[in-house]
Amino acid sequence: MIPLSHILLLSVILFTLGAAGFIIRRNVITVFMCIELMLNAVNLAFIAFARRLPGLDGQLFVFFVIVVAAAEAAVGLAIIVALYRNRNSLAIDDVDSMKL
C-alpha cells in the first residue's frame, strides 16, 4: 500500500512549488495558476486523509474545493481581463496603485 507520509510529502512539495511560483512570477495569469497548484496540493492531502480515516467526508471537501475554485477562476479571470483593459499590461508590478 502507498504510505500516507509519501502522499503528504508529494502534497507539500506541490504546495511549496505553488507558493514559490506565487512569489517569483510576474505575470498575473501565472500567479493565478500557482494558486490553483496550491489548492490542488491541499486536495491531495484531503484525499489521503480520507483514505486514512476512513471516510468519504474528505472526498466531499475536495468536491467543494473544486466548486469554489471554479467560481474563483471565473471571477479572477474576469478581473484579469478588466485589468488588462485598463492598464494594457499583465505584469503584476504595474498594478501598484488603486487609481490610474
Binding site: 500500500m1 502507498i2 504510505p3 503528504l8 476512513p54 471516510g55
Partner: peptide
C-alpha cells in the same frame, strides 16, 4: 518544506501505511 517533512516523519514514520479498508 523541511519543517513539514519532519512533522510528517514524526507523526507517521517513513512507511506509515495508509490503511485501506474497502471504502
Amino acid at each position: 518544506l523541511v519543517e513539514f517533512g519532519v512533522i510528517v516523519w514524526k507523526q507517521y514514520g517513513l512507511t506509515g501505511a495508509a490503511s485501506a479498508p474497502a471504502l
